[in-house]
Amino acid sequence: MSPRNTQFSRDDIIEAAFQLVREMGWEGFSVVAVAKSIGSSTMPVYSQFSNVRELEDEVCRKAMALMKEHLLVDRTGDRWIDQAVSYVNFAVEERHLFRCLGDGRNLDLQKELGMGLVEFLDQSLADYPLFAGLNDMEFRMIRMARMMFAQRLAHWLNNDIHFLNRSGLETEDFIRRSSRAIYDGFMLQFGKKTTKPGTINHNA
C-alpha cells in the first residue's frame, strides 16, 4: 500500500460515500467513485471494509443520525408537531438519503434503524403534555396513526415536492391540523377529554 493510501481512515471513507449518496443517490455510489472522491486508489476502501454492503450500511447509519438531528429541531414550539414537520422536511431536503433509508437494500438494518427511530421519538415524548394520562396502548395507537400519516406524506413529497401546493395546502399547517385531528379522534374513542386548541401551540 502506498503512503498516499494509508492516510484515509474508516471515517474518511464513510463520509465520502455518504456525500456521494447524499448528492446522487445509490446511482452515484461505487467503490471506484468513493476512492476517486478522496483522491485514492480503491485499496483503502477494501482494507477498511470487508465488503461493499458494510460500507452501504454505514452510509445508512449516518443518514439516520442526520435525520435524528433534524427531528430535534424546535420549529413550532410543539415537540410532536415538530417531529412530523422535520420528518417530512428531511424527505424533501435530503431526498436521496431519505430514499436510502427505506429502499430495502438491507432489510435487517432497515428494521433495526426503524425500531431505533421509533424508540428515539417515543422517548422524546415521554413527558409530552397532551399524552398525559394515556395508557401504553392508547399512546401507541395515536403515535402509530400519526406516524403512518407522516411517512406517507413524506414519501409523496419526496417524489413530488408540489403535491400539497397544487391543492392549495401549506405543508406545516396541514401537518399541524392533521395531527390535531388524529389526536382528537382517538381521544374521543378513548372517552377522554381533549386539551383545548391553543393550550398547546397547535393553532388548529
Results as ranks from 00 to 15, higher is better:
M187L: 14
L125V: 02
A154Q: 02
F131R: 06
M141R: 09
E69L: 13
A63P: 05
S178K: 05
G198H: 08
A91W: 01
L72R: 13
H70A: 00
N159Q: 15
K193M: 05
D184M: 12
L164T: 12
A150Q: 06
T195G: 04
R177I: 02
F120K: 00
E170I: 08
M147Y: 07
A154E: 02
R143M: 11
A145R: 14
D103F: 10
L121W: 05
G133E: 13
I200L: 05
I200C: 05
K111C: 02
R180V: 09
E172S: 09
A63K: 06
F186M: 15
P197G: 13
L117R: 09
L109S: 07
L71C: 04
G185P: 07
F98R: 03
S179M: 03
V118P: 00
M147K: 04
R105S: 00
M137C: 06
R176H: 06
A154G: 10
R143V: 03
H70L: 00
V118C: 01
C100S: 14
H155W: 09
S86K: 00
R146K: 14
M137T: 12
F174L: 13
R166V: 03
H155Y: 10
R177H: 12
F186T: 07
D82A: 07
H155E: 14
F131I: 03
F139Y: 13
L125K: 04
V118N: 01
R79P: 10
A63N: 07
T199Q: 06
T199V: 15
R143G: 09
R152A: 09
V118E: 14
S124M: 01
L169M: 14
T171A: 06
D122T: 06
R177Q: 12
L101V: 15
L164R: 14
D122V: 13
A181M: 13
V92L: 04
R176S: 09
L113K: 02
M144I: 06
D103H: 13
L101E: 10
L71M: 15
N106I: 11
Q189G: 10
M144H: 08
D122E: 14
E112L: 04
R105D: 00
L169P: 00
R75C: 04
G116H: 08
A126R: 15
A84D: 08
T76G: 05
D103V: 02
D82Y: 08
I175A: 07
E93A: 05
R143L: 14
R75D: 08
A65D: 15
L97S: 09
D127Q: 05
G198S: 08
H162M: 07
Y87M: 06
M147G: 14
N89Q: 04
R79A: 09
H70E: 07
P129R: 05
T199G: 02
G185T: 10
N135Q: 02
G102A: 12
L169C: 03
M147T: 11
N89W: 00
M115Q: 13
M67E: 12
R79N: 03
N106A: 11
D136Y: 02
A150C: 09
Y183S: 10
M115S: 10
L125N: 05
F120E: 01
L72C: 07
L134W: 09
F131N: 06
S178M: 10
E138G: 06
A65E: 14
S124K: 05
R79C: 11
T194E: 05
F163S: 02
D160Q: 10
T194S: 11
N158K: 11
Q110H: 00
Q151W: 06
M67L: 15
A145W: 02
F186D: 09
K68I: 12
Q110K: 01
M187R: 15
